[in-house]
Amino acid sequence: MTLLSVRDLNIRFTTGDGDVHAVNNVSFDLSAGQKVALVGESGSGKSQIALSIMGLLAKNAIVSGQVMFNGNNLLAASNDELNQIRAQKIAMIFQDPMSALNPYMKVGRQLSEIVELHEGLSRRDARIRAIEVMEAVQIPDAKRRLDAYPHEFSGGMRQRIVIAMALICRPQIILADEPTTALDVTVQAQIMHLLDDIQRDMDTAVLLITHDLGVVAGFCEDVMVLYGGRMMEKSKVGALFKSPSHPYTRGLLRAVPNIHDQTGQLHAIPGSPPNQMNAPTACPFAPRCNDVIDTCWQTLPELTGEDTQRACIQPVEALS
């Protein structure tokens, strides 16, 4: 069952120097219980997509397209309607746990406030729910830690609280925007484990936004690769890592150093990230692509294909 369907999403930002085309014609679906990764480098527009779903884009953003959720177009929804959906149906986990929490409020209060507001629970019931959810994210001694302030927790514990906040209303969709980027690897492993467990128990759909292909491989079922605000490839995790079909995905996978295999040189992708001041008229990856041919500079490739969808005018066999 499709929960969320994004169609032809375009996001532009008006700035003093002109418009920045952050996201161009992005479409995808998210089904119940599905774990999808949105992979891209900085500036690829991956976070903006999540923010547009939540209606949290900056004021200078111009959005077009559709984000359908339960028959409503979230892009056209009023703030009150969005407030109903936020937290209750769609929750978001942010990158920096410290700034996502209010430093002057006890964490228990921050948790229970959400359910009091959205589900109208009494203070006592909300507190019980807060303890439950803190136990669910494996915070030891939850009852006592309820009355602690965010700074009294370590980074990993703080991220657990942020996850608990996202989970407390049992949302159908969790948007996780780089949830482990600010954390150490050992903590990252714990958090990803936790997300995995919770996702299975609650059957939540998760949209994981990340730049780390390693995290994607261990967690997700489907992957979408963004570059310059356009979808480059959409595929199952197994297929993508085994035989990436887009030159950008190939380059990205080869650029990651493997700890068990120290070959002479890393395969770098030459050049710099794209300038997004103009709406793309050609493949945004063309200037950095190894397999570029003349037509690449003139046509804007569309996402095509059955299981593995790719936006590249050349057949897979022709790629190096």
Partner: peptide
């Protein structure tokens, strides 16, 4: 053991 491996077939036992 905690380093994520970019290969879905490798089961990371962190």
């Amino acid at each position: 053991s905690a380093v994520p491996v970019p290969d879905p077939n490798v089961q990371v036992q962190s």
